[in-house]
Simulated assay, not measured.
Amino acid sequence: MHRSLYNWTMALSARKSAEIWLAVIAFVESSIFLIPADVLFLPMALARPERAWRYAIVATIFSVLGGIAGWWIGSFAFEAVAVPILEFWGKLDTFNALKDGITYETILLMLVTSGFAHLPPIKVVTILSGAVHVNLWLFAVSALVTRGARFLLLAWLLRRYGEDIRHFIEKRLGKLAMIGAGVVIAAYVIYKLMLH
């Protein structure tokens, strides 16, 4: 099912309404959808590099708005909406494991790691932020910075290197981002251990 969703999302980039679809996918990715907006963003930015920055801004804004929707689901409709969504995508166990002992620091850390490396998936973090009642303004600003940094970095890479960088982005950038996220998480764990 994931492969067919991936292919369907990628096919949207060829439509005249691709920019609208980018906004929709960026929005729903942050609250309920499994496929990242990058799948649509990359071919769109390569096809029209002069619009890469614009696409990055659209993806960022709608990703943050979708994150706020995820926060709202977690805060006000957890049992009715969040649990079925998380169960459907097989993320409820991940969510429950993350919820235990959560703090503002760990939410900010997860916003950074999910914003850059999809670790954990952004929808898990947005719903979790609402469920534990993280301050909405803090959440929105953090999401804006991390999601914006990701899309703007992708836009810059695509504008500078074009098609040549696509393989690197699709195959290796995610792994590098995960390594970076792992380093950030390890640094945080070491920091917490040193405090105790």
Rank of each mutant, 00 (worst) to 15 (best):
L5G: 09
W8T: 14
A11C: 01
L12R: 06
L12H: 01
S13D: 01
A14Y: 10
S17L: 06
W21Y: 14
A23E: 07
V24A: 11
F27D: 02
F27E: 03
V28D: 02
S30E: 14
S31K: 01
P36V: 04
L40A: 02
F41T: 12
P43R: 11
L46P: 08
R48Q: 12
R54Q: 15
I57L: 12
V58M: 04
T60M: 07
F62R: 04
V64G: 07
V64T: 13
G66D: 03
G67E: 11
G67D: 12
A69E: 07
G70N: 01
G70C: 05
G74N: 05
S75W: 03
F76H: 09
A77S: 10
F78W: 04
V81E: 07
I85F: 01
G90Q: 05
G90K: 02
K91N: 13
K91W: 10
L92E: 08
L92G: 02
D93W: 01
T94H: 01
N96P: 00
D100Y: 00
Y104G: 02
Y104C: 00
T106I: 13
I107S: 03
I107V: 15
M110E: 11
T113F: 09
L119Q: 10
K123H: 03
I127A: 08
L128S: 03
V132A: 04
H133N: 12
F139H: 06
F139Q: 12
A140F: 03
A143E: 15
A143T: 15
T146S: 09
G148A: 06
R150I: 13
F151A: 06
F151E: 09
F151T: 15
L154W: 02
L154Q: 04
L158M: 12
R159C: 04
R159L: 08
Y161N: 10
I165N: 07
R172E: 07
R172K: 15
G174V: 09
K175E: 09
M178P: 00
I179N: 05
G180K: 01
V184M: 13
V184N: 06
V184T: 13
A186G: 08
A187Q: 04
Y188W: 15
Y188V: 15
Y188Q: 04
V189Q: 06
V189H: 07
I190T: 11
Y191K: 05
Y191E: 08
K192E: 15
L193K: 03
M194Q: 13
